[in-house]
Amino acid sequence: MKSYKSDKKYLYADRKDKNHKGKFLMSMRFDISGGNLDSAGEASSTIKSKLKQLGIGYSIIRRVAIASYETEMNIVLHANRGTLSVYVAEDHIKIIAVDEGPGIPNVELAMQEGYSTATEQIREMGFGAGMGLPNMKKCSDQFEIHSDIGKGTKVMIVIFF
């Protein structure tokens, strides 16, 4: 298993809960199907409008929106199927995306701005700038990505209020 650490102060899975003191409040879960561009972005849209109703600060919402949209689109464009879950706690929001798909052979490389394996066809639709993962990382306070080649990819993002 390859894993990637964000250069921000970052904690491994076994320690991360220490940093999340806020009480868990609710979760939302969405099934995302790979290749389905018709409903692409719908999960992120729903997440966004729910967070607005909850009165979450809008600079936080903007970061969550970008992060969840990019994770959602990566599943749609690069994986077979997956789930996008959002956990709302008193002091943070956690996004977890898990997919079944080809996985990422070189995570270090995929994290670089501009790196993309998107086909010409996907690029024509306006995706594949290779900015998704770097942008996700920029939006998050904690960022983790694990990939198993041939099996799938897991992304965890935490954004503190």
């Binding site: 009480k23 607005k52 109703q53 909850l54 009165g55 809008y58 008193e90």
Partner: peptide
């Protein structure tokens, strides 16, 4: 100035309850 819609509740915990 922002004029966002009223949240379901000022308190996040209660807003979550109301959302459920």
């Amino acid at each position: 100035k922002p004029k966002p819609i009223q949240p379901l509740d000022k308190n996040l915990g209660r807003a979550v309850e109301k959302m459920k």
